[in-house]
């Protein structure tokens, strides 16, 4: 078997199992309140763990983070999300702001 197929099959196993194992085996289990609270806070924690580096870092560096285009494109998106709670409106605003900032700077 060629190396790329080994990578594809191996890659499938190591991504599929972590995705389905908790859903298959934890669903319906009784869990202590503390664990339930922890699980309910994973969404905000992981979303900002994905978002913050995008806004602040350039190639893994915090240097000059205040010059990041994404950081400023995020401000109008943030406002629209806050005021309208519209997912599509926020994404459209973000896209337009990023394009505009790129055009201007």
């Amino acid at each position: 078997m060629s190396k790329i197929w080994i990578v594809i099959i191996g890659g499938m196993l190591v991504t599929f199992l972590p995705r389905i194992a908790p859903i298959l085996f934890l669903s319906g289990r009784k869990m202590p309140g503390l664990v339930r609270r922890w699980l309910s806070l994973i969404a905000p924690a992981i979303l900002s763990a994905l978002l913050f580096p995008e806004l602040l870092l350039d190639g893994g560096s915090l240097d000059m983070f205040y010059t990041r285009r994404y950081l400023y494109a995020a401000l109008p998106a943030f406002l629209v999300a806050w005021k309208t709670k519209s997912l599509f409106g926020t994404v459209a605003t973000g896209i337009a702001s990023a394009a505009l900032l790129r055009l201007l700077f």
Partner: peptide
């Protein structure tokens, strides 16, 4: 500006959680 579609989406999906202090601290 399409490169910013997903970060913008994360912003929209993150904000609704931020009405609770615990979620703000988690974020």
């Amino acid at each position: 500006g399409l490169d910013f579609a997903l970060p913008a989406m994360f912003i929209a999906l993150l904000l609704p959680y931020c009405v609770k202090r615990s979620a703000v601290l988690a974020a």
